[in-house]
Simulated assay, not measured.
Amino acid sequence: MSHIEEGKTNLLFQEFPALLRQGNQQALAQHPCMKLLHQAALLVARQYDGELLPYYYTYFGQERLANTGLAVHIPVRAGKPEGEALPRGIGLIVDEQTGELKFLGDPWGVDEHFYQKVQHAIVQNYTVLAHMAVLQHMQYQVSTQQIDEHIAITGGSYAVA
């Protein structure tokens, strides 16, 4: 049976609930954490030839707006396993009370491992981008390297002689 499933994360955006309650989408979109979240989701969407839309779909084809304006959609493509697509999308939702990031979507027909892999990749990308931003703000030169399923971040400060 098809249903909307909720995936929880450890990411907490403390300033977002107030912006969401105020309906201040412009301030939300300009927030540095939202920009990083958008970039993280876009990287995952592009990795799987998908796109970002502001909504995801229910089983009945009804649009559900993601309060972040971010939902990853990965269409079924020839030559790729059918279960490795998100034709209904998965919305990135911030809880309006706690600020916790959640994933909402209908995973019917999607490989469970792939569904979780996409969520994990978004969280991992966000974490990497956030760490890189902090290190760059501290004037470090930052590089990353993909090692299996993990990303290594290296930051160095170089003195000029």
Results as ranks from 00 to 15, higher is better:
M1Q: 13
S2H: 12
G7R: 15
G7P: 02
T9D: 09
N10H: 15
F13M: 11
Q14S: 15
Q14G: 06
F16C: 09
P17I: 08
R21L: 14
R21Q: 15
Q22F: 04
G23L: 11
G23S: 11
Q26T: 12
L28A: 10
A29K: 15
M34F: 13
M34T: 13
L36F: 09
L36M: 13
Q39Y: 01
A41E: 02
L43Y: 06
A45P: 02
R46D: 05
R46V: 03
E51G: 02
E51T: 10
L53A: 09
P54Y: 04
P54A: 09
Y56F: 14
T58Q: 02
Y59H: 13
R64V: 14
N67K: 09
G69L: 04
H73F: 11
H73N: 04
P75A: 06
V76F: 00
A78V: 07
G79W: 10
K80C: 01
G83S: 01
E84Q: 10
A85L: 00
L86K: 04
P87L: 01
G89N: 04
G89Q: 06
I90T: 08
I93M: 14
I93Y: 14
T98E: 12
G99W: 05
L101V: 11
F103T: 05
G105R: 11
P107E: 02
W108E: 14
G109I: 03
V110Y: 00
D111R: 10
Y115L: 00
Y115R: 03
Q116A: 10
Q116E: 09
V118T: 07
I122Q: 07
Q124R: 15
T127A: 10
T127W: 00
A130F: 09
A130C: 05
H131T: 06
H131Q: 11
M132C: 14
M132G: 10
A133Y: 01
L135E: 08
Q136P: 01
M138S: 09
Y140H: 13
Y140S: 00
Q141L: 09
V142T: 10
Q146E: 12
I147W: 08
D148P: 01
D148G: 14
E149N: 14
E149K: 13
E149T: 13
H150R: 14
H150Q: 13
G155R: 11
S157H: 12
Y158M: 07
A159L: 10
A159N: 07
